[in-house]
């Protein structure tokens, strides 16, 4: 088992290394290098004086061979130095750190709300498959799953915030205060994210729970008199949730994009504005650092889901053990 976990973690680190290389290579392929981008941004349109370009290239270290630059970049990443923004000249670490706490609060609150909602609704519908409640919930899940997050956001703003005047339309958080001190501003963004990310796990859990409920060992347990909450919580839930761990990991990983969208929709003071600004201005150091953080996040989430599946399912454990012995 330990060997399996070690090999999985090693695999995850390797994947991250591959992604890092890919990001570097992609940015190497850019037409014009960072120096050109910086100078163009200065407002000097037209021809750039070659000596100015050469000076800046030297200053940015772009005249060194690609291999050397790659090594120093990776070395910087490993030692926590994420580079310098081309646009503002600030260290990338500072740019990202300035507002990451707000984004993390939003993501964490969403996860804390979404996972129980998905599990409970999925099991609830799965135990009454074909009934009116199940049909209603399943149809709603299918319909909502398809709608892009920003559309859900503006519709919620129009109806809940402007129509019913229940909650703020814009999630303003004064600098230096935590959004947790103003829970009202979190409600609509979190509802929006849960609506986007919960339907898929709900559908998977529902389908698996329904399959298990009709299966031989659950029918046998029923014939032995086991029923109610105990039957669902012990005989059905672990397998159903284990089956949905991958989709749930997908939902959690999908938070990255979801949070970016929702922050834009509600003008929530998170990372999104900096990041999207950096993307549209082609500020590579920021995008590259963010890309590696995002990739690391996605890889870690999926790895955690796979290891959690081992914890939940002895059958999966056996498959791993016999497969590795």
């Amino acid at each position: 088992m330990t060997r399996y976990i070690v090999s999985r973690v090693t695999g995850a680190v390797l994947v991250l290394a591959v992604v890092t290389c890919l990001v570097f290579v992609l940015f190497e392929l850019l037409p014009g290098d960072a120096a050109v981008t910086v100078l163009n941004r200065g407002g000097a349109s037209g021809a750039i004086p070659p000596e100015q370009l050469a000076a800046l290239r030297h200053e940015l270290g772009l005249d060194r061979p690609a291999g050397e630059r790659f090594l120093s970049w990776v070395g910087g990443l490993l030692s926590g130095d994420l580079g310098t923004s081309l646009l503002s000249g600030r260290p990338v670490g500072d740019v990202l750190a300035s507002r990451i706490d707000n984004s993390l609060v939003l993501a964490l609150v969403t996860v804390v709300v979404m996972l129980p909602v998905a599990v409970v609704l999925g099991l609830w519908a799965g135990m009454r498959v074909g009934g009116r409640a199940d049909r209603g919930l399943s149809t709603a899940a299918v319909a909502i799953e398809a709608v892009p997050t920003f559309v859900v956001g503006v519709v919620l703003i129009a109806v809940v915030a402007l129509g019913w005047r229940l909650l703020p339309a814009v999630s303003l958080v004064p600098v230096g205060t935590s959004p947790l001190r103003r829970p009202a501003v979190l409600v609509l963004p979190v509802v929006c994210l849960v609506a986007a990310l919960a339907p898929h796990p709900i559908r998977i859990i529902r389908a698996r729970a329904a399959e298990l409920a009709a299966g031989e060992f659950v029918r046998t347990a029923r014939s032995h008199g086991v029923g109610g909450v105990r039957l669902v919580s012990r005989h059905i839930a672990p397998s159903a949730v284990a089956a949905a761990l991958q989709p749930m990991a997908g939902s959690v990983a999908g938070l990255v994009g979801g949070v970016a969208v929702v922050e834009t929709v509600f003008a929530y003071p998170g990372l999104a504005q900096e990041l999207i600004g950096a993307i549209s201005q082609r500020d590579f150091p920021i995008v590259a650092a963010a890309a590696i953080l995002i990739a690391g996040f996605g890889i870690a989430v999926y790895l955690a889901a796979d290891l959690l599946a081992l914890l939940l399912s002895p059958v999966a454990r056996r498959a791993v053990l016999t497969g590795r012995r």
Binding site: V19, A253, A278, I279
Partner: peptide
């Protein structure tokens, strides 16, 4: 499997930076 693990936003961010909007 690597592609599955990467959030779509990462792909979009990197591609939009490399290729421009």
């Amino acid at each position: 499997d690597v592609l599955v693990v990467l959030p779509w936003f990462l792909l979009l961010a990197v591609l939009a930076t490399v290729a421009g909007r």
